[in-house]
Each structure stands twice: as structure tokens, then as C-alpha cells.
Amino acid sequence: MSYEQLDALYRAVIMDHYKSPRNKGVLDDSNVTIDMNNPTCGDRIRLTMKEKDGKIEDVKFEGEGCSISMASASMMTQLIKGKDVDTALKLAEIFSLMIQGKDYHITDLDLGDIEALQGVSKFPARIKCATLAWKAMERGLTEGRKESGH
């Protein structure tokens, strides 16, 4: 491997999200809170969301982890903020396909910055870093919905 492959993993947009994370913090008025960690490496995330009538009105994350996990969390929050729950879950599905190196062009949804993380699929040991925030979001929206009777 070479610098080119490292560059493909650590794209500028990823490092930008790592350095200046979007939606960092904890929402005061959230109705969905999810803590998740990656027990094999110690990365952890707390995701707070404010969901109303099937729409994610606001979302914030905080946590500790490597550049890939934190940048992925930042991109994820940026992408789902303001979207409805079904769209967010669809995006999680698309992200999961992309990160496994599978064909992910299953909708024409705008994918924002997340395609920069495509290179992670070539680094199997890092896939779990990239998916942490997305798993938290999926769990929050599916379990949170069950509880609120949707």
C-alpha cells in the first residue's frame, strides 16, 4: 500500500469533519438518546435527537474515537438533520452497503459528504469505526419509535 491508498481513506473532507465536527454536543430537549460503544476498541458515541411527527428536527453527537468514527458521526448528523425518519433509515441502509463495498446506488437521495467514506471499504479493520454512529442512529430511531407507539 502507499500514500495513495491512505489518501483514499483519509480524504480531505473526512479530516475536515474530524477537525471541525458538525452538530457536536448534547441536545437539551432531545427525546431520543442513544449511547453506543465499540467494545473492541473503546470508541464511544452519545447521540441525542429531537424527533417530532416522524421528522428529525435536531440531532447532536458527542464521543471519543478515531478520525473515521468521529468524521462519520459528523457527516451522518449533517445528513439526517431535518429529514424524516424513514429517509434517515434508508440512508443508514445505503451507508451500510457502501461501507461494505457493495452497490449502494439504490435511490436518488442526496448523500452529502458520506461518499468520501467509500475508501473505508478497502480497510476491513476500520469498517466498525465508520458504522458506529449510524448504528446508534438506527437503534435510536427504531427503538425510540417502538416506545412512542409508531
Binding site: 500500500m1 502507499s2 491508498q5 491512505l6 481513506l9 483519509y10 476498541c41 470508541d43 474515537g65 478515531c66 478520525s67 473515521i68 480497510f123 479493520a125 476500520r126 469505526c129
Partner: peptide
Amino acid sequence: VHPHDVATVLDTE
């Protein structure tokens, strides 16, 4: 630099 990122660079070497 997070240790995972260090380990990934080392792995490429």
C-alpha cells in the same frame, strides 16, 4: 492522532 489511525498507517507499511 488517534491510535487506530496510527495503526492503520503502520499497517500500510
